[in-house]
């Protein structure tokens, strides 16, 4: 049961990244970072017990200069910690070179939520259902963290540790996500299944393929809602690498997925169903990435 009363908390409003990091060091486990707040506020309203409530909420509202989405053909795509999902949709290069992420952002929630929710917040929530998370996992990338001892980059492959837990230390602030520059022959796609269009995914999938003609040189496949964190389908990827994308190969790829995932029954679907359709959804994402209807 929620409440009509938001629990008491102390609001912190740092004016810079440095100040934010300092506050994190001071309060460590008693502080929650808030970007768009679309996860944070909901969690606070539905908190089962006072122990689950943060003592301090640090809003990034007044921290300047983190709202960028910058594309550079050499360096790739840089997304600042305050860039919203709606802002990600603005630059044409996102749609052109990072199709999977663009599509994830486009189908994400509703216009109101897209205007508030940040892309980084989605990654930092570390939910297995995160749509942007799924797309970023397939595209590959690096999360830039600022801590009291400076900055460090964490590869997205090492970022999610368990349900709701990331490699970020309590005194670190995520400031940016960087996606690699587009490679020739690289293409990507994102797909999700929901109960209704405005919904969290019951299953989502993203693929990034490096193609040479009809042959797949490299593949990164990511799936959500099938494990405690977003999942990379590394075994299935090997069935694609070096292969021509024939119907037989796609069939084999699709058949391999259920063996690699461990979904559960929940309010949005069943483990059984997720297994049944996981291969289909992946196959369709690959076909979409390659422009096959």
């Amino acid at each position: 049961m929620s409440s009509r009363i938001l629990p008491d908390f102390n609001l912190l409003l740092p004016q810079s990244v440095a100040e934010a990091v300092e506050l994190l060091s001071t309060h460590r486990d008693r502080i929650t970072v808030m970007a768009g707040g679309t996860d944070v506020m909901v969690a606070m309203k539905f908190a089962q017990s006072a122990a689950k409530l943060p003592e301090f909420v640090m809003s990034l509202e007044n921290v300047p200069g983190l709202g960028y989405v910058l594309f550079d053909p050499e360096k790739g795509l840089r997304i600042g910690a305050k860039a919203t999902v709606a802002e990600l949709l603005a630059p044409p290069e996102v749609k052109q070179h990072y199709r999977a992420l663009w599509h994830a952002a486009q189908t994400f929630a509703t216009a109101q939520v897209r205007n508030t929710a940040t892309v980084l917040g989605n990654l930092l929530r570390a939910s297995p259902a995160g749509d942007c998370s799924c797309a970023v996992y397939a595209l590959g990338g690096v999360v830039v963290l600022h801590g009291p001892h400076g900055s460090r980059d964490v590869d997205i492959d090492d970022f999610w540790l368990s349900y709701g837990v990331t490699a970020r230390q309590p005194d670190e602030l995520a400031v940016e996500l960087t996606l690699p520059p587009p490679a020739a022959g690289s293409r990507s796609a994102f797909k999700r299944m929901t109960r209704m269009s405005e919904d969290l995914a019951k299953l989502n999938v993203a693929v990034r393929l490096e193609m040479s003609g009809n042959t797949c040189v490299d593949a990164r496949l990511a799936m959500g809602c099938v494990a405690p964190t977003p999942l990379r389908l590394t075994k299935t990827e090997t069935l694609l690498r070096g292969h021509e994308l024939t119907p037989e190969v796609l069939q084999r790829v699709a058949a391999s997925v259920p063996w690699e995932i461990s979904p559960i029954d929940d309010k949005r679907s069943t483990a059984e169903y997720r297994k049944q359709v996981s291969g289909v959804l992946l196959k369709r994402a690959i076909q979409e990435a390659c422009g096959v209807a």
């Binding site: 209704m196 269009s197 405005e198 949005r268």
Partner: peptide
């Protein structure tokens, strides 16, 4: 988690 048809559906 109770899903009605929305405008897009």
């Amino acid at each position: 988690d109770y899903k009605m048809f929305g405008p897009e559906d």
